[in-house]
Design a protein around this nucleic acid. Structure first.
Length: 462
RNA sequence: GCGGUUGUAGCUCAGUAGGUUAGAGCACCAGAUUGUGGUUCUGGGGGUCGCCGGUUCGAGCCCGGUCAUCCGCCCCA
């Protein structure tokens, strides 16, 4: 006999877990739809050539490839076996999707003539990465993306701020920071320190400020070829710990000669002004948990404008959402010049954070409200129409499918956390009434079907 | 890809210096209670001590290898 086991980095979602995951997903879906986003699903399997080359060399290594069916060795020559990187596209035509963004770009390109632009879609599906699993890190995990393509209006950025706040508020997660920045500001900084071509390496180093501290960041910059004068120019930036206004004032000073940097500032200002106009908030930045963070870089190279990242405070896991604007999403598929902005919730991490903070309401686990017990043939025949009647009244109802010992049936109800049990035995049958037992208090009442339904509904309300 | 941790019952773990028949709690099953769960009491089932080899009269324990696991680093959600 073989011992069953899961592949590394994958998980089962048991019913209790699913109830909680759905609690999160329902709120995310509701919010996305409320803002006019439409659902999209794409296949788990994509053609390998659609995925490769989009995530950098390291990313390509992490793509799960699917071995061709049949005799995949046919037509190969010994030289093909010299380099495994060159072999894989010859024996694997397909692969599991690595994220939702690239399949989305493929979709937009393929359907461009039929779509209404600006096109707003959301997509909630699993993705796969051949990564080494760790805490908060899986090989199969869900992403919840929402993107708008075909407009560069900053209204989209403002709405992303609103959506993130709405979802987290509904989930009861109040202690978080929504970090914002703009890639153009980072480009401006790179210009300012005299390394306009080194935005990428600069960001990778700056991004680690939280983790390793300012001195180590400067060391890393030096290693990456930034000279002493450049480092000295960055130093005051790493020490900045002021308000939005003071950071902006600092940038006003250093960006006198950087058109790009000033553009980034203008975008941030306009995004905030639109959010303010939307919400009429007394203090938009504070009320919507915003933090203008000049060190926020988000490693991804394809962001060109706004960037976002959400950190849950007071927990070990941290980052639960992120996104930004990109200018050339579909370029790789021959459709240049399409600007888009999007973001993503990490459901699995959101789940872990909510569990750590005990934010799940108790009733998410609840499903069946009433269990009809089963005493035997005559009682069952009497019960079946009533079960149907309960269901038609909108009450989640089930009947125990066989006349097992009552103890066993009660245990079943208890284990499934069913709040009410209906007992129909000889005496109830004779009176055409139901014994309704409240499993929490243990109290039971002899009632008509109508009265029993009313009681169940009343309990549901309060 | 690199560094470390831990593998004993379904789960969490104990296991003395290398010594008889490997334990506990929880979970599970049955009974106390043939119309009542959650509490209580009584009884019961359940183990190739990750795997392979070595040392030894004797290995859960020591040694070598191997596989798995979790945690860091890199990178990411």
């Amino acid at each position: 006999m073989q011992k069953p086991a899961l592949p590394k980095g994958t998980r089962d979602f048991a019913p209790e877990v699913m109830a909680r995951r759905n609690f999160i997903l329902d709120h995310i879906r509701d919010t996305f739809e409320k803002f006019g986003f439409q659902a999209l699903e794409t296949p788990a399997v994509e053609r390998l050539d659609v995925l490769t080359g989009k995530y950098g060399e390291e990313g390509d290594q992490l793509i799960f490839k699917i071995l061709d069916s049949g005799d995949y060795l046919a037509g190969l020559s010994p030289s093909d076996f010299q380099d495994y990187k060159k072999l894989s596209p010859k024996i694997a035509e397909k692969a599991l999707r690595y994220d939702l963004t690239v399949p989305f770009a493929r979709f937009v390109t393929m359907h461009r003539s039929g779509l209404a632009f600006p096109f707003k879609r959301y997509q909630i599906q699993p993705v796969w990465r051949g990564d080494r699993p760790q805490k908060g890190r899986y090989r199969e995990f869900y992403q919840c993306d929402a993107d708008v393509v075909g407009t560069d209006s900053l209204l989209c950025e403002a709405e992303i701020i609103l959506m993130i706040n709405e979802v987290l508020d509904k989930l009861g997660l109040r202690n978080f920071t929504l970090k914002i920045n703009n890639r153009k500001i980072l480009s401006g900084l790179a210009e300012f320190v005299g390394h306009p071509d080194q935005v990428g390496p600069m960001c990778v180093a700056i991004d680690k400020l939280d983790k390793i501290g300012p001195e180590k960041v400067l060391e890393e910059l030096a290693e990456r070829g930034f000279g002493e004068s450049a480092c000295e120019k960055i130093r005051p930036l790493l020490a900045l710990d002021g308000t939005y206004e003071s950071k902006m004032a600092f940038l006003d000073e250093i960006f006198t000669h950087s058109e790009t940097g000033r553009q980034g500032q203008a975008e941030i200002r306009q995004m905030l002004a639109l959010g303010q106009a939307y919400t009429q908030a007394r203090d938009f930045i504070q009320d919507y948990h915003l933090d203008f963070d000049l060190t926020l870089a988000r490693g991804l190279t394809y962001y060109t404008g706004a960037i976002f990242e959400v950190k849950a405070l007071g927990v070990s896991i941290g980052s639960i959402s992120g996104g930004g604007r990109y200018d050339n999403l579909t370029g790789a598929f021959g459709m240049p010049g399409v600007s888009g902005v999007g973001f993503s919730f990490g459901v699995d991490r959101l789940y872990d954070v909510m569990e750590e903070l005990q934010l799940f309401p108790a009733e998410t686990a609840l499903s069946t409200q009433v269990l009809f017990s089963n005493f035997g043939e005559a009682e069952q025949a009497f019960s079946l129409p009533l079960v149907r009647q309960f269901r038609q009244a909108g009450i989640n109802t089930e009947i125990y499918p066989e006349a097992a010992k009552l103890k066993k049936q009660m245990q079943y109800a208890h284990q499934k956390n069913i709040p009410f049990v209906v007992l129909v035995g000889e005496t109830e049958l004779a009176q055409e009434k139901l014994m309704l037992k409240d499993m929490r208090t243990g109290a039971q009442l002899l009632l008509s079907a109508q009265e029993a339904q009313a009681r169940v509904r009343a309990a549901e309300m309060g």
